[in-house]
């Protein structure tokens, strides 16, 4: 598959029912293909028989169906496309329902016209109205939808729902449950849980990673440190706040790869590319000088990656797919 594609699976009773491919164009999603499970391909045992994409698909193993990754403008019980719409026919069941605007956001109308919570077994239904600016909205046949990721997923800058993975890296600090938990807290306090959140309301946040015995702990930077979307500015006496047993420093970049930060960060580049800046490196080296320990590690947590770096700036730089938050 090529391009910005969001793939949704419909699963009932842990059995694969169907698959939808949505193409993202300016954050609007269009169904570009629909595949029903009708058996298996003879050649490569692709689970999507009639699919002309068999040769292009990797093995798909569904162990735990995502709650609601599929959004489609259903017309009641069946979830079929509106008449005249170029979309392929969709199967009935598994949700359906519609919100004509009279239900609260996040609820749908059932067949009797009552507003109800959408089903949790996966399915196809309308979940809300398009925002005013049309961003992240799907507008088809006059119906506006909004893409939201289910629990356990996060939305990246492309608008794709990505499964939040637990950390299994070659870095035992990142793998530590307490540090994963700290990263999750930091990401939440950074206010960047979704690319939809305005950049001006996000903040860099961070703290110290210390080691006590065999366990790692996180200590937040003092509240006197000034946090902005584009940096963290310690006060003059910042060195007095460095804890003992320090092994690393972590801070967030509350952005997603590709985001344009120029409206919020002075003289920033057109697209956020992740990783530490020279300023982040100079800060780490200053901490190293203060504690006389040049084995300290720096960590950057952003919307897509965790990056670690050391005194070599880039030579030992490691990037990991976002995990634990």
């Amino acid at each position: 598959m090529e391009g910005k594609v969001f793939r949704g699976f419909k699963v009932e009773a842990n059995e694969f029912i169907s698959m939808y491919d949505f193409e993202s164009l300016n954050h609007n999603y269009y169904v570009i293909d629909f595949l029903e499970s009708e058996g298996k391909c003879d050649e490569d045992e692709c689970p999507f028989s009639s699919c002309n994409l068999c040769g292009e698909l990797d093995e798909v193993i569904i162990t735990n169906p995502p709650d609601v990754p599929i959004i489609y403008p259903g017309n009641g019980g069946g979830g079929s496309p509106p008449s005249g719409d170029p979309l392929p026919n969709l199967p009935g069941g598994g949700g359906g329902g519609a919100n004509d605007g009279s239900c609260p956001p996040g609820e749908i109308k059932d067949e009797l016209g009552n507003c109800i919570e959408p089903p949790e077994d996966g399915g196809v239904y309308i979940i809300g109205e398009c925002p005013d600016d049309g961003d992240d909205g799907l507008s088809m046949a006059g119906v506006c939808l909004e893409l939201k990721c289910p629990d356990g997923f996060y939305k990246n800058f492309e608008g794709d729902c990505i499964l939040t993975e637990s950390c299994a890296t070659n870095d035992e600090i990142i793998n530590s449950q307490s540090i994963q938990s700290a990263f999750e807290d930091l990401w939440e306090s950074s206010g960047a849980l979704s690319p939809d959140i305005p950049m001006e309301s996000r903040l860099e946040d961070g703290g110290w990673i210390i080691q006590n015995g065999g366990s790692y702990e996180f200590v937040s930077f003092d509240s006197s440190w000034t946090r902005t979307p584009c940096g963290i500015d310690p006060p003059e006496n910042w060195t007095s706040t460095i804890p003992s047993n320090l092994i690393g420093v972590v801070h967030t970049h509350p952005f997603y790869l590709g985001e344009d930060r120029r409206s919020i960060c002075d003289r920033a580049e057109e697209e956020y590319i992740g990783g530490p800046s020279d300023e982040d490196y100079f800060f780490l080296t200053q901490v190293m000088n203060e504690v006389n320990d040049y084995n300290l590690l720096g960590y950057i947590v952003d919307g897509d990656l965790i990056t670690s770096f050391d005194f070599t700036r880039t030579i030992n730089l490691q990037t990991y797919q976002r995990c634990g938050y």
């Binding site: 963290i232 500015d233 910042w238 003289r267 300023e279 982040d280 080296t285």
Partner: peptide, 18 residues
Amino acid sequence: FWNYKPEFYRPKMGSTKP
């Protein structure tokens, strides 16, 4: 490049600069 004047500079975390 551009940055704080020496008298105002102290290491801080910040975004990449031109």
